[in-house]
Simulated scan of single mutants.
Amino acid sequence: MTAANRIIRVIKGRQPKVVVIGGGTGLPVILKSLREQNADATAIVTVADDGGSSGVIRDYINVVPPGDIRNVLVALSDLPQLTLDIFQYRFKSHDAFFSGHAIGNLIIAALSEMESGIFDAVQRLSEMMEVDGHVYPAANVALSLNARFTDGTQLVGESEISAARKQIEHVWVTKTADDGEGQPTAMPEVIESIMAADVVVLGPGSLFTSILPNLMIENLGQAVTQTKAEVIYICNIMTQKGETERFTDADHVRILNEHLQQNFVDTVLVNTGRVPENYLDHQKYDEILWPVEHDFKGLRQLGCRVISDNFLELRNHGVFHNGQKVVQEIMNLAFQVNTAKRGE
């Protein structure tokens, strides 16, 4: 019997509650493996993206950027693969009007107008797509990501911030002009899921543009620091241009703690697998630089438990997390928390 099968047998009937917070391509990888492990999975997805098809749609109709939400819905859906392939289909460049747009993005945008908001739209679409779990936008309105750099300058917009290639000091989120004034807030369901979780997982994803935009929503960040759940950070394997150049794994956690003004990360998952020299296609993955350096002493000084292993998956000349191995560790931690709660 494999380790993965042992986890399924032990956890079945209890369904540990796992909340994953982030955005980008790493989130669906973890969610797919959590679904295979019979977890009660909730994805809280960033709404501060301003690039690609998502950004174009947002510019035209002021809707929350749908791309990350689309990919998460697919990762948790029980629909046949052909239906999911249609939902994911992206029009080719010679289709002038629809060029570059994914069909799923257009559907999410339409439902957002029909339901008067992205949150209800995603809940309706989750039912239609037979989603196994929960998908929650981090906020019910589109947010703008703001950054202050160490040289004192500031920029607005995820793509602008990354392209600046400056050292980021602090990020925060604001509502767009069309959505009124006041601080953005997360919906009650988002907060309830975090407070009821066994584990809350941050990442994997871009530190400043996929993870922190969620935590900078005030009531969401407060929930992550106040929950009794184990807070797990999946450290990126590679550093990223314009975000984490020259960062160690301890630097990642330090930035998270500084933004929420306390040491709140309980466990860090760190990859120790070696990326072969000259394997990465830097033209295809042009935002990726080099492997994150390890600083285990620094992590321990920040109060973190460190779980290190070869979490590496190499494919298509890209570097990714092995979802199954990462989720095995998450499920082990979830079981420990679940057991401790029942023993209180």
Rank of each mutant, 00 (worst) to 15 (best):
V56A: 09
A196R: 11
A186W: 04
T239K: 06
T176A: 13
I11M: 09
E230G: 08
V29K: 11
V337F: 03
T176Q: 10
R315K: 13
R35D: 07
R58N: 11
S126K: 02
N5Q: 15
T46S: 13
Y60Q: 08
V19M: 09
P213V: 13
Q37T: 10
G182K: 11
H134I: 13
G23S: 11
Q123S: 11
V275R: 00
P204T: 02
C304I: 06
D295H: 14
D281M: 06
Q37S: 15
H259D: 08
Q283S: 06
L155E: 12
L84F: 14
I255G: 02
D295A: 10
E189D: 06
V56I: 14
V63P: 01
A177P: 12
E313D: 09
E160T: 12
K12V: 01
H94I: 10
H170R: 15
V173Y: 07
P188V: 04
Y233N: 07
G273H: 02
P80N: 09
V327A: 03
E115C: 15
T227I: 14
N271E: 02
H321A: 01
G157I: 06
K297Q: 14
D120G: 10
R6C: 06
T227C: 13
Q81V: 07
Q154S: 15
L260V: 14
L280K: 00
W172F: 06
T150A: 08
I108F: 12
G133D: 05
Y233C: 15
P213W: 12
G23C: 07
R300C: 04
G242N: 03
L299W: 08
K297F: 14
V268W: 01
G182E: 08
F87C: 05
S33R: 11
P66K: 02
H170G: 00
D85A: 15
V10F: 05
R246N: 05
K175C: 08
G203V: 06
V20M: 12
L207W: 06
T83H: 15
L215V: 05
L299V: 10
A186K: 13
H294W: 01
E313V: 08
P28Y: 08
L212C: 10
I194V: 10
N338R: 08
Q167R: 06
A142K: 11
V10G: 01
G100K: 13
G55K: 05
H170W: 09
G104I: 12
I108R: 13
G152Q: 00
E218Q: 14
M114V: 05
Y285F: 15
N214R: 04
E245F: 00
D49C: 12
F149I: 00
L312R: 00
L256H: 05
V47T: 09
H134L: 13
T46D: 10
R14W: 02
D151T: 02
V253F: 00
I103S: 11
Y89I: 00
